[in-house]
Design a protein around this nucleic acid. Structure first.
Lengths: 186, 186
DNA sequence: ACCTGAACACCGTTCAAGT
DNA sequence: ACCTGAACACCGTTCAAGT
């Protein structure tokens, strides 16, 4: 006798994202997700292989959110140097608003959580576009990686508390982007 | 009636480090540490407040290892640009040899794991020295953060698998350091 | 076809009882 | 003073039994 579905994969992922944001990765448990979608924990295994798979879906959804923000940040653009700076700032705003999601997607989470390559590729497309306009097609990839690596590293250290020598962190961020854009331009 | 100590905090931290390296953070459990030092799990709580405290000690020990490597990498130095490149490479070698330790100390682990500020400060001292010789005292801090953030971000993305556009990753790393050293020099 | 309770093997942590 | 077994409240996951 068939039974109507009492929840959906989308609801489950959404619940996971909310839990991640509210209490970090540790509070994203199968049981918490289950109660949130109005079902018992074992039922989740009809839609998801295991917890790692669910966490991976949550990470991928976060990356996609970030991608939208990056696209919006570029806008209709103008100067590619300015656009690159706006991209870096958008990434930082995202990380400050959703630190757990940022840490999950860029700082390695549990070993079993492996994000689809395509997710990363799609999110990095806007950066790559702007980098190409700034540095030319030939060095676009290197340039995109240079600024992305720096921004991710800066933000991660900021969130982790690894910046311990004082100084204005906001200013340091702006100083860094400027410097990188100049370096890429030449 | 007093009883002889059957283990020490050093043994415990060492066991934690070994477990971290072999199976990642998830396999660093109180029970696994306990069996490794020849004791039952509850006994660990005589030397350590809880698991987070132990993980923090493990992280700090790893940072201290890294610090030694950085000091060795600078050597008696010579050209500060060259020294900075050697520092970046040493960080990357460390990360490749002990990815779990790197992820734990620079990608944020569990929320309760907060590394002592002094640990970060001590490890960044060699970088700061070289940066000062390269860029002058006034911009040394900014310069040190620029290269540290980039290197950490690059390596983290490398370990996470966030580099999805192909290309030679080793070459990209070398290209990036060169570019940064030039940018800092001017 | 989906959902559930019960069960299993694991966690971290506390605490009274041993020596 | 240290160590332990037993206990508690949690996990993730499986599976037979329900509808």
């Amino acid at each position: 006798v068939p039974t109507p579905e009492r929840t959906t994969i989308d609801q489950i992922v959404l619940a996971g994202r909310e839990l991640l944001e509210q209490g970090g990765l540790t509070s994203l448990t199968m049981q918490a997700v289950a109660t949130r979608v109005g079902v018992r924990a074992p039922s989740l295994y009809k839609r998801v292989r295991d917890r790692d798979a669910l966490v991976t879906l949550v990470a991928e959804a976060s990356i996609d959110d970030l991608r939208e923000r990056l696209v919006a940040a570029v806008g209709d653009s103008g100067d590619p140097g300015e656009a690159l700076i706006r991209l870096a700032r958008a990434l930082r705003v995202f990380a400050h608003e959703r630190p757990a999601a940022f840490a999950l997607t860029f700082g390695s989470g549990p070993a079993g959580v492996v994000v689809k390559p395509e997710s990363y590729r799609r999110a990095s497309a806007p950066v790559l576009d702007v980098a190409a306009r700034l540095a030319g097609d030939r060095t676009a990839l290197d340039a995109a990686r240079l600024i992305t690596a720096w921004a991710n590293g800066f933000i991660m250290m900021e969130l982790t508390g690894a910046f311990q020598l004082g100084g204005d962190v906001d200013r340091a961020f702006e100083w860094g982007v400027q410097r990188l854009v100049e370096a890429i331009r030449s």
